[in-house]
Design a binder for these strands. Structure first.
Length: 496
RNA sequence: GGCCCCAUCGUCUAGAGGCCUAGGACGCCGCCCUCUCAAGGCGGAGACAGGGAUUCGAAUUCCCUUGGGGCUACCA
């Protein structure tokens, strides 16, 4: 029981679920499921200035959408709650008292290192460089009597860890091996703020210990924090968990992925019409490999084959093109009805003014477009002319490419005539009408097809035109041909 | 600046001394199919950062250089 594997994902609600965070959550989740362990969700909301409830909900929703279910968490409870750090302050005070009693921390009365709270994006400048290079704070050398006196006077003090500057600290990392930090590289650091609140490194240790976390799997940006946490474990006499620092995800400019990089939150992908399964598969392969050449892996396979040994050490660049490809692969596996339902769900979001959105119509459009797009949203974008009643505005490319010939108007008129006379407007019926027309005139069907495409879709490219016409229906098709005919009569298309 | 991590095709990666004239996938480029697109088929270009060392033999081990990244808050 005690050696049951327990991991956690500990986001801070200062933003929505980031793909980097999602990938960290995924690796933790896979590790837990692979080992029959437990996956704990903990909210690290000790930064009260930047937290927002909305973000917490968004993170939960994102995880659920991806299918990363947790065994314990703020919303469902568990044996080691509460699961929000803001609700665990008493635990931290207790641990802090222990540290104080054992002489591992000292009161720090400094006030000159207030963080710049103006903008959360701001990076610390070098103005406190001198302070930061100092291994310890002057307060550490304060006479006990002076210290007591100032405390008695009610002067607020932070608690700072008294780090032994002669000791090297080694982090044993499951992915990177032993990482040693030389003596003196870890300065005395704050553990409890002046307002009494526990700081990240301290709260994390306290929580991971009391929640019986056995493996801490987190982003590499935390590697440099680990010696501090190790020091706290030692001071408290606690056994530290195993650590595994996974490589971070970079943007295409090779920088840490940030909100400036376009779509970086998982809910962005949801609204862009990605399938959660595809995102999960893609994220799993960012930094992890099953060891063979498989690219498309089911959740079951991922769980079965996931090991930390299969995680690479180097950072990975997020490649949207490969994600798109993968999404298409997953779209191929979705039943047509389900796909149509997804389109119907997204349609009001992406095209609130869609005029034609009845289920049978959406289903036909989806079936036609699905094989030539990479996301659900693209069905709606590329097939916009299916959802509108007004004739599409032809693109300049479509006009110059397919309507520049002098006899375009004549051909279009002939097509119109043929479509009026078509026995029926099924795909076969439309095709018979157009091909019959071409045959009668001894020309290639393409000469009629392309102008018709422009009339019906406004685009130079589209799905098969017979299908398009059939779905649109005779009335709409004729109206669109008339519209283009009018347009060409008023302003002849430019020569190509 | 200091400390730490990392380094195979443009990108994600396989590779744990000979199986590597380095494999796969995305992307890219041709050709075929074809009403355009997509899909599909066939073919192609494309990498072990550099230098030392160890070894009979290094993509694989060690060192240095270079490059990239992370951390360096009373943020997480």
């Amino acid at each position: 029981m005690t050696d049951k594997i327990r991991v956690r994902f500990a986001p801070s609600p200062t933003g929505y679920l980031h793909v980097g965070g999602a990938r960290t959550a995924l690796f933790n989740w896979l590790f837990a499921r692979h080992n029959g362990g437990e996956f704990v969700l903990r909210v690290e909301d000790t930064d009260t200035a930047r937290n927002r409830d909305e973000f917490e909900r968004g993170i939960f929703d994102g995880l659920r959408w991806l299918g990363l279910t947790w065994d314990e968490g703020p919303d469902i409870g568990g044996a080691f709650g509460p699961y929000r750090q803001s609700e665990r302050q008493a635990l931290y005070r207790e641990a802090a008292e222990k540290l104080r009693a054992s002489g591992h921390v000292y009161e720090c009365f400094c006030t000159d290192t207030e963080p710049d709270v103006q903008s959360s994006e701001s990076v610390p400048t070098d103005r406190t460089a001198a302070d930061r290079t100092a291994a310890s704070c002057p307060c550490r050398a304060l006479e006990p009597a002076v210290r007591l006196e100032r405390m008695a006077a009610g002067e607020p003090a932070a608690l700072r860890m008294a780090v032994d500057p002669t000791l090297a600290i080694t982090v044993v990392d499951l992915i990177r091996g032993d990482v040693t930090f030389p003596p003196g590289t870890v300065p005395d650091f704050i553990v409890v703020k002046r307002d009494g609140g526990a700081l990240y490194n301290f709260a994390v240790v306290s929580d991971d210990h009391s929640m019986r976390i056995t493996h801490v799997i987190r982003g590499e940006e935390h590697l440099a924090n680990t010696p501090k946490q190790l020091l706290i474990y030692e001071a408290l006499g606690w056994q530290p968990p195993a650590f595994a620092h996974i490589p971070i995800i970079l943007n295409e400019q090779r920088r840490k992925l940030s909100k400036r990089d376009g779509a970086t939150f998982v809910n962005d992908y949801e609204t862009m019409g990605f399938l959660p399964q595809a995102l999960v598969n893609f994220l799993a392969l960012l930094g992890w490999s099953p060891g063979d050449n498989r690219e498309i892996l089911s959740i079951e396979e991922m769980i079965r084959d996931f090991t930390l040994a299969g995680v690479v050490k180097h950072p990975a660049i997020f490649d949207p093109a490969k994600l798109a490809w993968m999404n298409k692969e997953y779209m191929k596996q979705v039943a047509p009805d389900d796909l149509a339902h997804m389109v119907a769900t997204l349609l009001p979001v992406l095209r609130p003014n869609a005029a034609r959105k009845d289920a049978p119509h959406v289903a036909r459009v989806t079936a036609l477009l699905a094989e030539r797009v990479r996301t659900i949203a693209e069905i709606i974008e590329h097939g916009a002319y299916f959802f509108d009643t007004d004739p599409p505005e032809p693109t300049s490319e479509a006009l110059s490419k397919h309507c520049a010939a002098p006899d375009t108007v004549g051909r279009l008129a002939a097509v119109r005539d043929a479509l009026v006379k078509a026995d029926d407007f099924s795909v076969a019926g439309v095709e018979a009408a157009i091909r019959g027309l071409a045959e009668a005139n001894g020309t290639k069907a393409a000469t009629y097809i392309h102008p018709l495409r422009v009339a019906l879709t406004g685009q130079a490219v589209s799905p098969g035109i017979f299908e398009v016409a059939s779905i649109l229906g005779r009335d709409v098709a004729l109206a669109r041909i008339d519209a283009l005919l009018n347009r060409l009569a008023l302003a002849p298309a430019p020569r190509s």
